[in-house]
Design a protein around this nucleic acid. Structure first.
Lengths: 154, 154
DNA sequence: ATTGAAATCGAACGCTC
DNA sequence: GAGCGTTCGATTTCAAT
């Protein structure tokens, strides 16, 4: 799919304010509402826009601990790891990646005790390395046209 | 803030469908529309709901490469790292964490060449370890009440 | 429960490639 | 002709009071 400036602008706005009305969206890109609606519909259709989600602050939900758990899963154990660890409720992101630490899990927990429990569980499938998250200066930065423009600041 | 079952249900729905109308939301939790709107407003007010965003598929935006770059930033270089690397357009997530690899960056790129460029840039501030993302079986799983219920499958 | 705003749809028309 | 956008009116749905 070929995207023009207006499409990129729509994506940028929607990645920032996912609940904006089509009327306001149309105003922001200087198009009519029907044209705007149609473009968004096409972006959804093309699989560029895959959904809309509310963002929550886990710390205000009784889950003050956030950690990245890297797991060096033994290859034979991978299917069981997918079944027994990836689906755990604490796991917010699970990435299968290249390299020695072949899985990266972002988990949130009620307490360090619960994190310990989680890590012990994960360790049944391979060695783990756990890092507590101090802060996340960037969380889900919007993808924009400049993202593929080389080394560019935002 | 004290959350009841309905609040949790609202959060769960909104984390799945961020553009649902209040009318439909009300129907799904068996409340009146005004009561539902008021609850959502309170969750926003309390900082539990922090925003709404569209989710995009970077691969359909000319950015097929996704990687996790761990950077062992020398502590004296941290301010410059924050200024010169964290703001780069390719960075979608940046987490400051405990441990030797004190920064974790999720980056998207047009090509491995661009990734190489990025990593070389980051390396000015410390040693790096880069992992390509094969797949992400879980991306931003909703936080639910059971998230803090111990080892529970979802 | 009322009221204004927003979304949705169809039809007709113009512009450009 | 195909694709895209605009305007208008009519209707329905939604949000706010």
């Amino acid at each position: 799919m070929e995207l023009d400036d207006v499409d990129w602008k729509l994506l940028e706005i929607l990645q920032t304010d996912g609940r904006i009305t089509f009327t306001e969206l149309a105003r922001r890109v200087s198009l009519s509402a029907p044209a705007t609606t149609e473009r968004v519909r096409r972006l959804e259709q093309a699989g560029v826009l895959t959904g809309y989600v509310a963002v929550v602050d886990h710390r205000r939900l009784g889950l003050p601990i956030e950690a990245i758990v890297r797991v060096r899963v033994r290859s034979l154990d991978t299917p069981r790891f997918r079944e027994r660890v990836v689906p755990l409720a604490q796991v917010r992101d699970a990435d299968h990646v290249t390299g020695d630490d072949c899985w990266l899990l972002r988990v949130v927990c009620r307490s360090t005790q619960e994190l310990e429990e989680f890590v012990e569980h994960a360790q049944r499938f391979g060695d783990t390395t756990t890092s507590l998250v101090f802060s996340s200066p960037v969380r889900t930065r919007p993808v924009t046209r400049e993202t593929s423009d080389g080394i560019v600041f935002r």
